[in-house]
Design a protein around this nucleic acid. Structure first.
Lengths: 216, 216
DNA sequence: ACTGACAACTTTGTCAGACAACATTGCACG
DNA sequence: CGTGCAATGTTGTCTGACAAAGTTGTCAGT
């Protein structure tokens, strides 16, 4: 938290989007944030600018910013890119992940437990942890950054998919496959499994209701 | 250019970085831009914020922003990601590129001509056009956006490689291989050729002088 | 001459207030 | 019922201000 006020606002908004308090399509009015958070307009506006070019907020001149809402095609596009990036991450991570395979196995067990308890919120959290553990192990700042960027913009859809569908089971199976590849130290298998995993999620997103997407 | 002043400043700075007037490592002082460009501090600062999260500018508290200078490892990291992304672009672009293969062949010829005339600046420009033509044909906004983002942050290095080395010849050979894959409509081949092409460039970058990199 | 401390200057971080440009809303009028 | 206009709200941009932190220059003492 050593950062500036701008960063604080950026984090607050990012968090609000990720935990669903700010739904895609919501318009962000400057005044609400200056008053609500107690920062000046300059600070809030600068935070908005950062979030615009990070892709989280959409911008229209004289109409301010809103939480970016993707069209169905855009969502699919994001998933395609994400599948590739996370596939690369899995591949690059394999040597390091092979070393500390035990950590992945343990996380996997915690995921299983969350499924058993039907604790969706916990599952979602651990799921994010699983993916970011891989991205970290890949040891590539720019890959990590790109993955985070895209992950944030589909986080909402991701969560919607988990709710209601029993996607948790297949998700867990996929994870197991990835962990097995790590244990075997098979980078190509890890990559392939990750790509399949994410494209599967993409298929589920495609079937979501119209409401979740920006109309074209 | 219908955009806001903020966008104008963003474009001015981006252009300055791309054409080498602003070298990585240069510190940007607010006052220089308010006076030099005739915009207010708010506007300039908001532009800086956008460029920070787009990755072009690096930020340090109370020390302002500077043009992002990558360490050697970071540069390699960027190339790895870029190779994957452009590989995906080539794969996705193949059907469309197959249809309008003639355009690629013509561009290829113009590239050959530039090489024959040793017109490095033109070559660099056409080279960028070649890659962005592929990214466009891939018809995926997010892929395009990610490619642009990474391309900008290594543009300087990319240009440095072309100067001095006779990388233009091998580059052109690589392009030909990609175009051939498009003509054949072979998506996998196009992807593989593109990945090889960019990793080759990565190797050249790795051999650049220390001066071009941030010391670790 | 070197070093460390301290003062003077520069630059950034943040705030407050102002006003024009544009968007939205609601009302009056045809 | 639709249309145009006024009232209101929101954003875009500018100016000025001041505290906080970084940077640079000076000077005494070894």
């Amino acid at each position: 938290m050593a950062g500036s006020n701008v960063e604080a606002v950026v984090n607050i908004i990012t968090e609000a989007v990720r935990n669903g308090r700010l739904v895609p399509g919501t318009r962000l009015v400057e005044a609400d944030y200056t008053q609500g958070l107690g920062y000046s307009r300059s600070t809030v506006r600068e935070a908005f600018q950062r979030l615009i070019s990070s892709g989280l907020l959409a911008f229209e001149r004289h109409r301010g910013v809103s939480v970016c809402k993707l069209t169905r095609k855009q969502a699919i596009d994001v998933y395609r890119v994400r599948a590739t990036l996370e596939g690369l991450a899995a591949r690059l991570a394999t040597p390091a992940a092979h070393e500390k395979a035990q950590q992945f196995i343990e996380l996997q067990e915690r995921l299983d437990a969350a499924v058993a308890k039907s604790d969706l919120s916990l599952f979602s959290k651990l799921n994010t942890e699983f993916h970011s553990m891989i991205a970290d192990a890949a040891d590539n700042d720019y890959l990590l950054q790109a993955i985070k960027r895209f992950e944030t913009s589909i986080f909402w859809l991701q969560f919607r998919v988990l709710v209601g569908q029993n996607a948790v089971f297949t998700t867990n199976d996929d994870h197991q496959e990835i962990v097995r590849a790590f244990v075997a130290g098979d980078a190509a298998a890890a990559e392939a499994a990750m790509v399949r995993h994410i494209l599967k999620a993409s298929d589920l997103v495609q079937d979501l209701d119209d409401d979740y997407f920006q109309s074209d």
